[in-house]
Amino acid sequence: MTGKQDKGKQIETELAKIKGNKEVINASDVVEWAKKHPKSALYTCFEWDDATAGAEHRLWQARRLIALHIVTVEGQRKTVSLTMDRAKGGGYRQIEDVVRVPDLRERMLQDALAELRRVRAKYNSLVELASVFAEIDKFDLPQEDVA
């Protein structure tokens, strides 16, 4: 087991401890627990410098604003964040521009399929969606580990 796997297991154990016998685990409980346990694996997952955390949160808010407000009259998004751009610091492209450039269109398709595979992994236990997941499998594109 690698260090990353060890840390992942440690985080899983800490989260299970926080949840205990409760029906749900609450994010605020996780943050509070981590704050009280600075030697924990969970503690290392958070940005504790308020200025840095505030700046990161405002960036997240800006991303949400772009996604929610640069839309068509029908409410469909007009921008897309491609993994190749996120690797270079992020940014959003107009979808109409992306679909006209073959390499960008291919990247958008790869990103979409990666997202669909993550959805499948999350909801794979719902047999009612098996036919939907089978359609995803029809794409003969190489699977990439896309964040």
Rank of each mutant, 00 (worst) to 15 (best):
K19R: 13
K22H: 05
I25C: 05
N26M: 09
A27W: 07
S28R: 12
D29N: 11
V31C: 00
A34S: 06
A34N: 02
K35P: 03
K35W: 14
K36L: 11
H37C: 09
P38W: 09
K39E: 15
L42V: 05
Y43S: 01
T44C: 07
T44M: 10
F46W: 06
E47V: 08
E47H: 01
D49R: 12
D49P: 03
T52R: 13
T52I: 15
A53F: 06
A55I: 06
Q61V: 08
R63S: 09
R64H: 13
I66Y: 14
L68G: 15
L68T: 08
H69A: 12
T72I: 06
T72L: 10
V73M: 11
E74R: 10
K78R: 14
K78L: 15
S81K: 05
S81G: 03
L82V: 00
T83Y: 03
D85P: 00
D85S: 11
D85H: 06
R86P: 00
A87K: 09
G89C: 05
Y92A: 03
Y92C: 05
R93Y: 06
Q94C: 12
D97V: 07
D97G: 09
R100E: 15
R105I: 07
M108C: 01
D111F: 06
A112N: 08
L113Q: 02
L116V: 02
R117V: 04
R117P: 04
R118P: 01
Y123D: 01
Y123T: 01
N124L: 11
S125Q: 08
S125F: 09
L126D: 13
L126V: 04
A130L: 06
S131H: 01
F133V: 00
A134L: 12
I136V: 06
